[in-house]
Amino acid sequence: MRISGIFSVTGMTLCALFCLSPVMAADLASVIQQRYETLKSFSAEFEQTLTHKESGSVERRQGSLLFQKPLLIRWQTAKPHEETLVVTAREIWDYLPDEEVAYRYPPSLVRDSRSIIQVITGQAALTKDFDVKPEGEDQGMAKLRLYPKEPAPQMVEAVIWVEPGSGYIRRASIVDFYG
């Protein structure tokens, strides 16, 4: 499954030259890491596209993401694919109103440094946990491809689009084990 999202966080600084060499990609990864490590909280509106490789089906969703340190997350999508995911230090809840069911998971699922949650909350060490490859500039943003040094089912590859000056991730595309 491929998950793509566009994140909206205030502030826009453009500097596409960061992404021209591997050294600059590492520098940009450090800027991203530092930016998200220092955030105490943030909120974002997102658009998400889920593409199922086997069936070819595509689902588009919109929603909001709320984050507060140390690790409190609320990911909520709007109708018609309504879902609420809540992450706390003790548990993860995934509520699907259409199915009238809530699933409870251990918090260890989001503590894996190879998850996008760990990247956007500043808890993944990008240059330690990922091979970071620059892919140039795309619409004023630096484009980086991330390969987990130890692939996990939830992420075997990711592409992030970053405001180089601010270090904010504006868009992400994640490929899981199933493609």
Rank of each mutant, 00 (worst) to 15 (best):
residue 133 K to W: 00
residue 29 A to M: 04
residue 145 R to T: 11
residue 137 E to A: 12
residue 105 Y to F: 15
residue 175 V to R: 13
residue 113 S to L: 08
residue 39 L to F: 09
residue 90 R to V: 00
residue 163 E to R: 08
residue 177 F to H: 09
residue 106 P to Q: 03
residue 24 M to W: 10
residue 115 S to F: 07
residue 147 Y to V: 12
residue 3 I to A: 04
residue 81 H to C: 05
residue 109 L to P: 06
residue 12 M to T: 14
residue 141 M to N: 08
residue 61 R to C: 03
residue 94 D to S: 15
residue 123 Q to H: 15
residue 26 A to K: 14
residue 153 P to Q: 02
residue 110 V to Y: 14
residue 151 P to A: 04
residue 175 V to C: 00
residue 159 V to A: 02
residue 62 Q to C: 10
residue 80 P to D: 01
residue 37 E to F: 08
residue 151 P to Q: 05
residue 143 K to Q: 09
residue 169 I to S: 08
residue 38 T to E: 05
residue 117 I to S: 07
residue 53 K to E: 09
residue 175 V to E: 06
residue 48 Q to H: 01
residue 24 M to Q: 14
residue 154 Q to N: 09
residue 125 A to H: 15
residue 59 E to T: 15
residue 169 I to C: 10
residue 102 A to P: 08
residue 160 I to G: 01
residue 153 P to A: 09
residue 33 Q to I: 02
residue 73 I to S: 04
residue 111 R to I: 00
residue 11 G to L: 10
residue 173 S to T: 06
residue 156 V to F: 03
residue 93 W to S: 15
residue 62 Q to N: 15
residue 72 L to A: 13
residue 155 M to P: 02
residue 156 V to H: 09
residue 122 G to L: 10
residue 160 I to Q: 01
residue 172 A to E: 01
residue 175 V to H: 07
residue 34 Q to D: 13
residue 111 R to T: 05
residue 179 G to R: 06
residue 67 F to K: 05
residue 93 W to F: 15
residue 45 E to I: 12
residue 92 I to C: 09
residue 105 Y to M: 08
residue 80 P to L: 04
residue 48 Q to R: 02
residue 13 T to N: 14
residue 57 S to D: 11
residue 104 R to T: 05
residue 162 V to A: 03
residue 10 T to I: 03
residue 24 M to T: 07
residue 11 G to R: 10
residue 179 G to T: 06
residue 166 S to D: 04
residue 130 F to I: 05
residue 90 R to N: 11
residue 178 Y to M: 11
residue 150 E to F: 13
residue 147 Y to G: 02
residue 24 M to F: 13
residue 109 L to E: 11
residue 25 A to P: 01
residue 31 V to E: 00
residue 17 L to E: 14
residue 6 I to F: 12
residue 137 E to F: 06
residue 37 E to M: 15
residue 50 L to P: 11
residue 81 H to Q: 12
residue 161 W to F: 05
residue 5 G to F: 13
residue 27 D to N: 13
residue 24 M to C: 08
residue 33 Q to M: 07
residue 104 R to V: 09
residue 101 V to T: 10
residue 17 L to T: 13
residue 120 I to A: 03
residue 140 G to K: 04
residue 39 L to K: 09
residue 35 R to K: 14
residue 120 I to C: 03
residue 82 E to Y: 06
residue 84 T to C: 12
residue 61 R to K: 15
residue 89 A to W: 07
residue 151 P to I: 01
residue 57 S to I: 11
residue 179 G to Q: 09
residue 55 S to A: 07
residue 18 F to V: 04
residue 130 F to D: 01
residue 83 E to W: 06
residue 150 E to M: 10
residue 84 T to P: 11
